[in-house]
Amino acid sequence: MEKQKVEQIIAKHKSEPSALIAILQDVQEEYRYLPEEAMAIVVDRLNIPLSRAYSLATFFTAFSLKPRGRHSIKVCMGTACHVRGSGMILEKIERDLNVKRGETTDDLKFSLDEVYCLGCCGLAPVVTIDEDLYGQVTLVKMPKILQKYS
């Protein structure tokens, strides 16, 4: 982790406690998680206790304290996707990759998460991997989709 990058991120925002969430979001985007050292620098610059950053980091789902995988799989658990069987898709991915929802595979290749409604309910059930969106996913199609990512 480079100290400088974190400093650059902080510099983009106001050095006020109110900017904490926005700064952490940018750090999360940069590292795909919140490294401890980075959080330490942030709270130091904003002059607030580390506990405050931790409480935010554990409250909001956008933050992760553990390193995330190279690819982020998100299975839509929105209502429309749920009634069209997205739960089974999620279970299938959990089984195939041997990973639980909210967690990352041991080889740091995939992180698996649930999301709620991606706004394309017409394509339900929907899965996204990084920037790619897959609609009308079936149990049979899923492994082939995962194969595309290395």
Binding site: A19, Q25, L56, F60, T61, A62, Y116
Partner: peptide, 22 residues
């Protein structure tokens, strides 16, 4: 930008979140 919490749609929670708090 929100940070992924449904309760932040509730107005008082939303305000706190804009203030950079829980």
């Amino acid at each position: 930008r929100g940070a992924g919490a449904f309760v932040c749609g509730e107005e008082t929670a939303l305000i706190s979140s804009i203030e950079g708090k829980l």
